[in-house]
Amino acid sequence: MTTYKISKDKMNELLTSIKGYDVYVPTEMGDKFQFRVMKDAGDAKLGYSQSAKPPKDVIFPQNEVLMNYKIQPNGFDVENSLDHIGKFVIFGIRNCDARALKYLDTQMLNGKYVDPYYAKRRENTTVVGLACNSPLYNCFCRSVGAGPHHKEGHDVHLTELDDGYLVEVITDKGKELLANSMSLLAGSSDADTSKQAELKQACEAKFVRKIDVKGNDKRMLDIFESDYWRDVSDGCIGCGICTLLCPTCFCFDIQDIGSRKEGQRVRVWDSCQYPEYTMHASSHNPRPGKKERQRQRFFHKYVYSYKNNQMLGCVGCGRCINQCPTQIDIIDVIEGVKNVKEGSE
């Protein structure tokens, strides 16, 4: 790992000097932030708090055309979109979202079946992380294994200092990305590194909410049938915001769209919060109500993921809490499990 420093006014130059990639940067939209392809370096708002939608859709797009097909008089043409995947940079991702990409890897790249579309995009993506100096009220990444200054999953790690950014090049991919921009970077001093440590400490002190997950998975299994799950999901309207905006949710559906002659096979995100998600062909639905559907969300993140991958399916970004229209609060729900007076103790 090599450490450099870049002054703040040169940041835009650095962004412009990245060639051959689609550079996704946090941009301002209304009163929210969104990761979008950079058209002009001035659009990048690196002082952002959190993007409304996590940048996982660079690697796992919500709407991904898998192939185009066309029926010809003698056979048919199939064009696999795998051949057209370009190169991407996610510039300024927070550690919570970067860690979520590592979680997605366990689902998409591990085991017998590797998802070729995901694999190719992942391979072609360079992740430039940006340390978080002011967590939001509902952030709890420190309780679930991530952290505001963690570098897990980053190819390059940036830390905003008073007079510039500390640039840590972690992987070869990161080196390659910055190859053209080396002239903009200067060496860093010990004072910068100690300032970084200071910022880290100051940021960690700012966290308000936390969650204690120890032993919760067993307790949750104990009270699987409890009315507790009905009570916590009373206000749910079944919209699926919590899953669609979750950086670790990965469920999808495959749709064929088109006419008799030509069309596309498309992969779209799906959500366990929709009744159609578990509907059987017989019309029986094993998760008939919001109680069962919300319970599934909590269990997948805090029980099953841990059991299968030894990694929680939650990175503590707090989006599902901030954006829930009816204030369902995952911290409260998981913490509340300890107070349920049923099941075997």
Partner: peptide
């Protein structure tokens, strides 16, 4: 362009 079609507007 940013709509994620969560359908919250419809559900609520």
């Amino acid at each position: 362009s940013t709509c994620v079609r969560c359908l919250a507007c419809r559900n609520v």
